[in-house]
Amino acid sequence: MDNTFSSYKIEDRSLIAFIKREIHNLALQLGFSPHRAAETDIIVAELTSNLIKYADGGELLYRGTQMQGRNEIEIFCLDNGVGIDNVVKIMSDGYSTSNTLGHGLGSIKRLSNDFQIYSMKGWGTVQYVKICEKADMDIIPNPAGFNYSALSVNYPGENVCGDGYYIKQSANGFKIFVGDGLGHGVNAHEAVQLGIKAFQRSTAEDSIEILRDIHEGVKKSRGLVATVACVDYKSQNWNICGIGNINTRIFRGLENKTYSPYNGILGLNIPRTINSTIVPYLKHQIIVMHSDGLRTRWNLNDMTSIIKQSPHVIASSLYKDNMRGTDDATVLVGKIT
């Protein structure tokens, strides 16, 4: 199943019924029972109506996933409204700011398998919801030591995404690929998917050699840009290298550093001499990798306590504030725990 998110800008109530029907049908396609699909309807209704009532609109992103025999729907709800002063208080059933029954956020939390919310006064709010096919399903944790989230969205009007990402796990460490096919649409999608397949096939341990394998594997496509970040548990180091404009940063507390890629296009032309960057792999680091569908002038430290939040919240907050809307967009956030 495609791992990109469908995106809808919600500015008035005219789209709400359509979005509810789309997600309801997706739930049934994924094997949700009619009762669970109805509970999903309630969650979507609360999220979308709150966007209209309290934020004058916003954006809803959703996708269905099938992983390890489990069927799930993930939803991000983003707005630039006035924000929430006291998230804990407003989460309580019975609390209302509009003389209603006050079951909104409390019902979303109760009916979903995972619900996360982050808000700042004057900045807006991001919400993340995961709905499993069964209400009592536990959330499968990411592999020990690395918790991540990724968000990919098509260029407006396109049916496929020219960006892509993939993570390979092993007993010795893990490897991250983030790529962006040139342009957008079907040909860009083909290029990045060939890049992912070459990344999956590569047996190299060094990011440079992996990029060379990708370069050879995508020569029949229009080409792509990509960065590969590898972690080796034995050496306790990151090994990072990129060709083209994938932005890569590592944060730890107030410290952060951007790792500059080389000029070039995988599949067409890459430098003869390439060096990777070796960085210590440390607890509490946050790695952010994103395509040029997002602006690069951002700093996590500008958002209050954001580094304490989950990768879902961090990724969606960066997307909300920095989405250009002129290309496909992908942002991947990983936390070392």
Rank of each mutant, 00 (worst) to 15 (best):
L111R: 04
L47Y: 03
D12N: 15
G83Q: 08
T4K: 00
N301T: 12
G102D: 11
G334V: 13
I250Q: 01
K20S: 12
A135Q: 13
I265V: 15
S235R: 10
P34K: 10
V192L: 06
I314E: 06
Q116H: 05
N159D: 14
T248S: 04
H215Q: 04
I274T: 09
F251T: 04
K53T: 11
A144Y: 01
H189C: 14
K308H: 13
G122I: 13
Y262C: 06
A144I: 06
V160K: 00
M120K: 11
G164C: 11
I246A: 11
D302W: 03
S98K: 07
L224F: 03
G164V: 10
P261G: 09
G58I: 11
A55Y: 08
I140P: 09
I139N: 09
W123H: 07
I19Y: 02
L61Q: 06
K109A: 12
A226Q: 08
T330C: 13
S317T: 15
I287T: 09
A329D: 11
A204T: 01
D292C: 08
Y319F: 15
D2C: 00
M91Q: 14
N263I: 05
R297F: 07
N275Y: 10
L101R: 11
F5G: 07
G104R: 03
I16V: 14
I73V: 14
M289V: 07
N269K: 12
L78Q: 07
G173F: 02
I274V: 15
P143K: 03
G58W: 05
M67E: 15
S92L: 10
A135G: 09
N245G: 02
V192I: 14
D292H: 07
E74Y: 02
S235M: 05
K308N: 15
K234I: 08
Y62N: 04
Y281R: 07
R13W: 05
V279G: 01
L194H: 14
L282I: 03
F199A: 13
T248Y: 00
D85W: 01
D328W: 10
S316L: 11
G183M: 09
E74R: 06
I250E: 02
L151A: 11
K283E: 15
L182K: 03
T125F: 05
P156W: 02
K257N: 09
R222A: 03
R13D: 14
H312V: 01
N147R: 03
T65H: 00
I243L: 03
R222N: 13
A55M: 06
R201N: 14
D327M: 04
I196V: 15
D93E: 09
I265N: 02
Q169V: 10
S96V: 12
T326R: 01
N142W: 02
